[in-house]
Amino acid sequence: MSKLPEMISKHQEAIRADWLKQMSGAVRRADLMSNEEIDSQSRELLTTIASGAKSGGITNLDGPAWTPAREALAAISASRAKQGFTTSETAIFVLSLKQPLFAMVRKELAASPDAVFDEIWKATLLLDNLALITADAFQTTREKFIARQQEELMELSTPVVKLWDGILALPIIGTLDSARTQVVMESLLQAVVQTNSRFAIIDITGVPTVDTLVAQHLLKTITAARLMGAECIISGVRPQIAQTIVHLGIDLANVITKAKLADAFALALQRTGKTVVAMDSGNAKKTLFKKEE
């Protein structure tokens, strides 16, 4: 039976003081968190470790006795991930507990070197396990961050712009995959309904490559828009992409394609019965002059 749990409970305050001293040398990030915060975190963690070791043993940390300790560690790691600590800085927070714990074991069991070695080995295993929990929690928080950012990026990357009454533009930048095409399609159809538009220009200037799948997705979007009574024009078809489309045998015969967004806009204006007329410079001057009078 290990004496470690008993020793931790007995010397909790001494260990904590030593631990804080250790940390101030190794990982204290005064720019990221205050002393009070570290103080309260270390107290909370050590208390939960002491109670976990006492009731749940020190070999298996999966049991319910260790739940408070695991939760405390996860919360600490998550807050550090948000504050901008690195993985090693977060792990060292727990690992720096080793030295004070070992020193305490040595002092307590000074009489028998065998027992010292035995307890130190157990303490190492315990802290390594705790450090692994920390690292896992840190990683999970970071991954959540990244996933959320990806979502935001996806929403930002598919803006639907109203060019004129009844004419929408949808500039697509970056590679199109199934998930993204779904977002593109939904935001386009939503905008068609909201603005009651007759024309939608899908600009693929910023799409690096077009493969069969992407083309299929585009065609699906175009069909859906057409069902709703909106005609789609694809613009920004670069020579390489045109070649790829021909090479893959994708049939775009029923779709209006234009090389430039400007051409597509001009066509849409023409189809809606509008033209762009250059302002007569003489008239413009006259109006300006009249206004000044």
């Binding site: 159809l189 939503q190 068609v192 309904v193 069909t223 859906a224 069902l227 709703m228």
Partner: peptide, 10 residues
């Protein structure tokens, strides 16, 4: 299903 989805937009 497509038409049903499109109706939802309206």
């Amino acid at each position: 299903d497509t038409e049903k989805k499109l109706c939802e937009f309206f």
